[in-house]
């Protein structure tokens, strides 16, 4: 039995719409600017509404929406995307920041002074494949297996990208905090 238009709409409103913010956030992360994020969000939600009959009820609606979003981005937006600055992830020393601060601020209290925009800029400056992993894992809270499925990469790749992306973010935000005087650089 196929649900009526009215029923489908009710289901969509109850199960998909609560994830609108998550879709928008990820769209912004992928596209890099609010205008494209809005377009991309709208297109994703439209596609999802049209394809609602394909959604497996009871499965993860947020993951389903983000998959549609990501495919839309890759197929229609990526080539238009402005390539901003990207950081170099080579040569990062693991857990360098903790070693730097363990004497002066082992609980990482200095992070509390860093504003949202600086964090989003730092994430935005990561190369795309690292940005996506850190976003899906650390912001959206998906388990490794779900991230791997969404990005169509092995779990080992998720782990290693996450490792490097977190270190790169930490290093950048630590440097920023030092510059702003939120934490003192260790005397060498």
């Amino acid at each position: 039995m196929t649900p009526t238009t009215e029923e489908r709409r009710r289901q969509f409103e109850a199960e998909a719409l609560p994830h609108l913010d998550a879709v928008y956030r990820y769209a912004h992360t992928l596209a890099g600017d609010p205008t494209q994020a809005e377009d991309l969000t709208q297109e994703t939600m439209l596609k999802a509404l049209r394809a609602w009959h394909q959604f497996e009820r009871g499965s993860n609606a947020r993951a389903w929406l983000l998959t549609i979003l990501r495919n839309t981005f890759i197929n229609e937006y990526r080539r238009r995307q402005h390539q901003g600055e990207t950081v170099d992830l080579a040569g990062l020393e693991p857990y360098h920041v903790f070693r730097e601060v363990q004497e002066v601020d082992p609980e990482g209290r200095f992070f509390a002074n860093i504003v949202d925009d600086e964090v989003l800029r730092a994430i935005g400056a990561l190369p795309e494949e690292f940005r996506e992993v850190v976003w899906l894992s650390d912001v959206e809270g998906f388990p490794y297996a779900e991230v791997a499925r969404l990005l169509e990469v092995p779990i080992g790749t998720v782990k290693s990208r996450l490792f490097r992306a977190r270190h790169a973010l930490q290093q950048r935000l630590y440097d920023y905090a030092v510059e702003m005087g939120y934490v003192k650089r260790r005397a060498s």
Binding site: D21, Y24, R25, F111, Q170
Partner: peptide, 29 residues
């Protein structure tokens, strides 16, 4: 060390989740 890394991950999540679609954007969609 574990405590520090946990604090960092919590901070990251809290800061990055703040960016949602504004009310006008939602209305338009």
């Amino acid at each position: 060390h574990f405590d520090f890394e946990r604090a960092f991950l919590r901070f990251l999540e809290a800061r990055a989740r703040g960016r949602g679609a504004g009310p006008e954007v939602k209305q338009r969609i």
